[in-house]
Amino acid sequence: MRLTELPIGSIARISSIEDSPYKEKLKEMGCIPGVLVKPIMKAPFGDPIAFELEEYTLSMRKNEAYSIQVNLLNPLFNS
């Protein structure tokens, strides 16, 4: 599934990133296959979205998040 489909508070593992002009930027910010992500909040109108990425918070637009494929780990997790 795609990163945009994750509900707030759920945890997923990045599986792959599609090619795009911002792929490299995403990677250097730490979006690497295998890394855990957790959507923590959305800006008004649902875009951009902020994710907890290991130890810090990264925000990106829906568009960018859509290019990231993830595997959902615990749909019930809520904090």
């Binding site: 995403l26 918070t57 990264l58 637009r61």
Partner: peptide, 12 residues
């Protein structure tokens, strides 16, 4: 034509 993006750290 190069699309813009907004990939930004939210500092504590």
């Amino acid at each position: 034509t190069i699309p813009s993006y907004f990939i930004m750290e939210l500092p504590v």
